[in-house]
C-alpha cells in the first residue's frame, strides 16, 4: 500500500463523507411506539417482522436502522395490566443498545423507580405532573433530571395562543404552554416532549412556531412531535423549529419514511445527524 493510500484511508472524511462534517451534538430521530397490554397498537407494516405486535422486535429493527432513541407510550387502561409494562421494559432493555423512554400513566416516584430499575433510561410524565408539579421535583431529586421527560400536549386556540391539554388531549386547561414548560424545567424536567394537537395526524409538518418558542426559551432539549409527513418537515423542525429531536410514529411504522434515508437527507441538508 502506498503512503498516499494509507493517508487517504486514515482520513475520517474518506470512509463516510456524510458522517464527518465537523463534530458536535447530533439532532435525534425518535420513533414512538404505542403499547397496550404489552403489545404495539396501530398498524405496523414491516415484512421483516414475524410478529408485528411485538414491541421488542420492532425496537430492534428501528435501532438497527438508525433510530437514535425510542419512546414507548403505554396506553394500557388498568393497573393490573400495567405489570406487563414492567416485563416489557425488561425485555426491551435486554435487547436494544440505544436509550429509551417509557411514558403513559406514570404518576408516582414508585412507578418511576420500578421502570428505571428494570432498565428504562427515562420516563415521560404528562397529566400527573401538571396536576401535581411537585412530582417533577421529587423525580429529579430522586433520579436526576436527565431521566425526567415532561410531555406536553398543546393546542393553538382561536386567540393564537398555545394551551396545555391533559388526559391525552381530552381536557383543556387555561395554562399557556410556554409558561408550564418553564415552570416544569425549574422543577426538574430534563427534556420537553412537545406534541401539537393541531398538527398531530395531519402529515402537514410540525408546529414550528411553538417548538421554536420553547426551544429558544428553555435551557433543556425539546423533542418535537406531531405532524411529520415528509423528510422536509424534519429539516424544517430542526432549522426553523430549533428542535433538538423529532419524534414520529406512523410514517415510520408504515415505512413512508425510512429512518436511515431520512438521516441521509438531513445530513445532505447540513443538519448534524448520527449516521
Amino acid at each position: 500500500m502506498s503512503l498516499e493510500i494509507i493517508k487517504e484511508s486514515n482520513d475520517p472524511s474518506f470512509s463516510n463523507p456524510l458522517n464527518r462534517s465537523g463534530r458536535g451534538l447530533a439532532k435525534r430521530i425518535i420513533p414512538c411506539l404505542d403499547i397496550k397490554d404489552g403489545r404495539t397498537v396501530k398498524g405496523i407494516n414491516f415484512e421483516s417482522i414475524r410478529d408485528a405486535g411485538d414491541p421488542v422486535e420492532l425496537a430492534i429493527l428501528y435501532s438497527d436502522n438508525g433510530a437514535d432513541e425510542l419512546v414507548f407510550l403505554d396506553i394500557t387502561a388498568t393497573i393490573e395490566k400495567r405489570k406487563t409494562l414492567v416485563e416489557l421494559v425488561k425485555r426491551i432493555a435486554a435487547n436494544i443498545n440505544i436509550p429509551f423512554t417509557v411514558g403513559g400513566g406514570i404518576s408516582s416516584v414508585e412507578d418511576v423507580a420500578l421502570l428505571l430499575q428494570n432498565g428504562a433510561d427515562k420516563v415521560s410524565v404528562n397529566t400527573a405532573a401538571f396536576k401535581n408539579p411537585s412530582l417533577l421535583k421529587q423525580l429529579s431529586s430522586e433520579f436526576g433530571s436527565q431521566c425526567v421527560v415532561l410531555a406536553i400536549d398543546t393546542k393553538k386556540e382561536a386567540d393564537g395562543e398555545w394551551y396545555v391539554y391533559l388526559n391525552g388531549g381530552r381536557t383543556k386547561t387555561d395554562t399557556k404552554t410556554v409558561q408550564w414548560a418553564k415552570e416544569a424545567v425549574e422543577l426538574g424536567a430534563g427534556e420537553i416532549l412537545l406534541t401539537s394537537m393541531n398538527n398531530d395526524g395531519t402529515k402537514n409538518g410540525f408546529a414550528l412556531d411553538i417548538t421554536a418558542a420553547l426551544s429558544s426559551s428553555l435551557p433543556v432539549p425539546v423533542i418535537a412531535s406531531g405532524g411529520a409527513g415528509s423528510m422536509e418537515h424534519f429539516k424544517d423542525v430542526f432549522d426553523t423549529g430549533k428542535a433538538d429531536a423529532a419524534l414520529a410514529a406512523s410514517i415510520f411504522h408504515y415505512k413512508e419514511i425510512e429512518i436511515l434515508a431520512l438521516k441521509k437527507y438531513l445530513s445532505v441538508n447540513k443538519i448534524r445527524v448520527r449516521l
Binding site: P12, R23, G24, L25, A26, K27, R28, D68, S145, Q146, G190, E191, S215, S216, L218, P219, V220, P221, K242, D244, A245, R274
Partner: peptide
Amino acid sequence: SADQKIPQIGWNNIY
C-alpha cells in the same frame, strides 16, 4: 450558542 444546552443529551463524536 442557543442550541448548546446543559445537560448535553444525545449523540456526539469522540476523537
